[in-house]
């Protein structure tokens, strides 16, 4: 187990290097000198040249990449052009907000999704099943920003019940969590349903039924646990979709998380900041993948890892 974990962690190193190289070269081939942007109203060629040297921007890209890697390994992600603060500091300030939002959304989506999937699977193709699955498909098909606008309009403008922006109290969190959790809940519900239906076809379910157990205890004792296994694997995907979703959600609701940092970094052409956020986000997703992987093998003793 520990050996497998270590192996998994080591095997992500080449991926991380590949990811960082891709992002670094993608961002550094961009035309438009960051110094010129930084000093837009101050064009003294000598000073420009000096700053460029101080920031090592006159070095060739491969050398800057190696320096970037060495810094990143120590947790230094560079210096934001626009905010004039270390990128790691900006991320450290913003990330807790994103975590708070994403974890709440994940919890809500899991509770609602699993219950909805369960209800659907108990009576497949019934009216309730069709209604719930229709709702789930709508959830997947709905653009998050639009759900946000509609909720803001209904609860903020028409009813005046909830604040439409900000992140100060739990009341501020209701709408963003709903928006972010909605499509996740839909995904979990669809997966729980199909997985439970699949498990219910197995022989041991028929055995449990034939020895006189009621449907509810068969599902509770025998089926549910097994059917939730594939649901656990999408946790890894969820880390990624929640992170992606937080970009839109935070922008609409004005939440100071890393999603909004990324968007403002793009609008300000703030290369180090955007680069840092993307590296950090990808790192989180890779960790999420490992966690889901380990969890999966712990929950399902049938799965033994063999080296490829």
């Amino acid at each position: 187990m520990i050996k497998h974990l270590l192996f998994r962690m080591l095997s992500t190193i080449p991926i991380l290097i590949g990811v960082s190289a891709l992002v670094f070269f993608l961002m550094n081939v961009v035309p438009g000198d960051p110094i010129a942007i930084m000093q837009s109203n101050f064009i003294d060629p000598d000073a420009l040249e000096r700053v460029r040297r101080e920031m090592h921007l006159d070095d060739p890209a491969p050398i800057r990449y190696v320096r970037f890697l060495a810094d990143a390994a120590r947790g230094e992600l560079g210096y934001s052009y626009k905010l004039r603060r270390p990128v790691s500091g900006v991320i450290a300030a913003a990330f807790p907000n994103t975590i708070k939002l994403a974890v709440s959304a994940a919890l809500v989506s899991w509770i609602i999704g699993i219950i909805a999937g369960l209800i659907s699977a108990v009576k497949p193709n019934s009216f309730v099943d069709n209604a719930l699955m229709g709702l789930a498909l709508t959830g997947i098909s709905m653009p998050a920003f639009w759900a946000a606008l509609v909720l803001q309009y209904i609860f903020g403008v028409v009813l005046g019940l909830l604040p439409v922006a900000g992140f100060e109290s739990w009341r501020h969190m209701i709408l963003p969590v709903t928006v972010l959790g909605w499509s996740e809940a839909a995904m979990v519900a669809r997966l729980t349903r199909s997985s439970l239906l699949e498990v219910m076809r197995h022989d041991y379910i028929r055995t449990a039924r034939s020895k006189g157990l009621s449907w509810s205890s068969v599902i509770r004792i025998h089926a549910l646990k097994n059917s939730l296994l594939p649901v656990v694997t999408i946790m890894a995907i969820q880390v990624s979709t929640l992170l992606s979703g937080s970009i839109v959600t935070e922008s609409v609701f004005g939440i100071p998380g890393i999603g909004r940092v990324a968007v403002s970094a793009i609008n300000n052409r703030d290369m180090p900041l955007l680069q840092g956020v993307i590296m950090f986000g990808t790192f989180i997703v890779i960790i999420g993948n490992i966690v889901a992987d380990v969890l999966y093998s712990t929950l399902d003793p049938r799965i033994k890892y063999v080296r490829e």
């Binding site: 991926i15 993608l26 992606s244």
Partner: peptide, 22 residues
């Protein structure tokens, strides 16, 4: 496949941001 792994490791929206920035 290693190149594919690198692309798959990204949260798609973040990679899209990087490409759109460039």
């Amino acid at each position: 496949m290693r190149i594919a792994d690198v692309v798959l490791a990204f949260p798609s929206q973040l990679l899209a941001l990087a490409i759109m920035y460039t």
